[in-house]
Design a protein around this nucleic acid. Structure first.
Length: 427
RNA sequence: GGACAGGUGGCCGAGUGGUUUAAGGCAGCGGUCUUGAAAACCGCCGUGCCCGGAAGGGUACCGUGAGUUCGAAUCUCACCCUGUCCGCCA
């Protein structure tokens, strides 16, 4: 959500910024909507003020038992009535029109975000780790999982449908181990507070982080009107909705391990094989709520926390700075972390860390203030995967595979697998 | 799911149609007094939006939305949420 005042003050800068997202100029039409809204409010306020004054005089006249004067005044105010309700409707209509228009516009890219309309313009910032040299042709995760008899795509299809998978035995345990490992890392080493949140949320919550009104098709919805969360970012960030936080309490650092549900409405035909793109997957999410001046540093810190998971698991990765056209709508700057998948012979996204600036905070009315000082400011919100558990599992399978199809368990996970060092085909 | 009771500012709490411009208290901030502090006393003390260079003025907000009325925190309707009891339940 954008501040119309800022657009009014510098329409050219606003249009230039949204152009980087591939959008046509909007400032002129927004300012026109705002002018109508302000004119309507000025007239409504003035007329309402007149009514309030006269109504008080009626009260005073009645108190003095001056019925004649009261009746005269009532007749006078009565004439205002139709006009007043028309003005009120008009004002509200313009207010809603402006809010609706603003709510559809994505965040403005930060100055240091590169130009570009798709992933081809993303910049690689750094690499970590060296892809392992295999003495055999590495397999993809689905061949490994099926070979172990622990990844059952047919059962997923039977129980639910395409893009659902059943995992069994030590593979299921490995997935659990990954989630626990990540949570422990972020809570004990990076100060994130472990949180359990609703997996179903209401309209206001889905609006706050930007899923609504534009992207409802990407979410599953219950027949009772709840939205199934596509990421724990949604409930975690909305904890700040309609709150004024003492600045001494910031930053908030929150983490949660949750299932995520995505309809993948626009992804027909992509990544249909295997577990890369599922309707349901687990993810450890990181959310930070900060003072405006702290969000850039927090963004680096959060990204480092996510990278640390891969470093501890000894999985090679690279970190990308997304270009303006490849970022999600809420973000003003995004780092993607891509893990090396030897079976696919390429890097694949495993985490996305975004600084949303005040774009979500304005939608949520999430503010902070220095106690005793006048006024409030919108907080900044950040979110990042720390990491997507399903994709991390894939990365472990492909990077730790042995020639016989078994999987070595990374050292960092041993405390979480009860000492199990190797996953082999079930007897 | 059923019955009853509720929802008022950062917190507590009064307020059942017209000086409510939401009493009073707590917390907070400033001041007087004091060597300093406490106490006492005095003052300030919600969030938007609109107009204005500013000073200031207007307007909205008492769970949400609609309605009645010249006028609604107060009356009506619907919905949401909370509490208590009953039922059901991991």
């Amino acid at each position: 959500m954008h501040d119309i005042k800022i657009i009014r003050e510098n329409p050219a800068a606003f249009d230039a910024a949204i152009a980087r997202r591939g959008l046509s100029p909007l400032a002129e039409s927004l300012i026109a909507l705002d002018a109508k809204r302000r004119a309507a409010q000025a007239e409504f306020d003035a007329t309402q003020g007149k009514r309030n004054t006269l109504s008080k005089e009626i009260g005073a006249a009645k108190a003095k038992k001056d019925e004649a004067r009261a009746n005269a005044l009532m007749a006078e105010v009565g004439e205002l009535k139709d006009r007043l309700s028309a003005l009120e409707a008009e004002q509200k209509q313009h207010e809603v029109a402006l809010a609706d228009a603003l709510s559809l516009i994505p965040n403005l890219p930060a100055a240091d975000v590169p130009d570009g309309l798709d992933e081809n313009a993303n910049q690689e910032l750094r690499r970590h780790g060296t892809p392992r040299a295999f003495a055999f042709k590495p397999k993809e995760h689905f061949d490994l999982g099926e070979g172990l008899g622990l990844m059952d795509f047919e059962a997923g299809i039977k129980l639910a449908g395409a893009r659902f998978t059943v995992m069994r035995g030590q593979l299921a345990r490995l997935s659990r181990a990954l989630g626990q490992f990540m949570l422990d890392l972020h809570t004990t080493e990076f100060g994130y507070s472990e949180t359990i949140v609703p997996l179903l949320v209401n309209d206001d919550t889905a609006f706050g982080t930007g899923q609504l009104p534009k992207f409802g098709d990407d979410l599953f919805r219950t027949t009772t009107g709840y939205w199934m969360i596509p990421t724990a970012e949604v409930p975690l960030t909305n904890l700040a909705r309609d709150v004024i936080i003492d600045e001494s309490q910031l930053p908030w650092r929150l983490t949660a391990l949750t299932p995520c549900f995505r309809s993948e409405a626009g992804a027909a035909g992509r990544d249909t094989r295997g577990m890369i793109r599922q309707h349901q997957f687990e993810k450890v999410e990181l959310v930070s709520i900060t003072r405006p001046e702290d969000s850039e540093a927090e963004h680096e810190r959060m990204t480092a926390a996510a990278e640390t998971v891969l470093k501890r698991l000894d999985l090679p990765f690279r970190t990308m700075l997304l270009c303006a056209g490849d970022m999600g709508g809420a973000a003003r700057k995004t780092y993607d972390i891509e893990v090396w998948l030897p079976g696919q012979d390429r890097y694949r996204e495993i985490s996305s860390c975004s600084n949303c600036g005040d774009w979500q905070a304005r939608r949520m009315n999430a503010r902070c203030r220095v106690p005793g000082e006048k006024g409030t400011r919108f907080v900044h919100t950040l979110n990042g995967s720390g990491l997507a558990v399903g994709r991390t599992l894939i990365a472990v399978l492909e990077n730790y595979q042995q020639e016989d199809g078994s999987i070595a368990v990374p050292d960092a996970l041993l405390p979480y697998t009860g000492g199990l060092k190797k996953i082999e085909k079930a007897a």
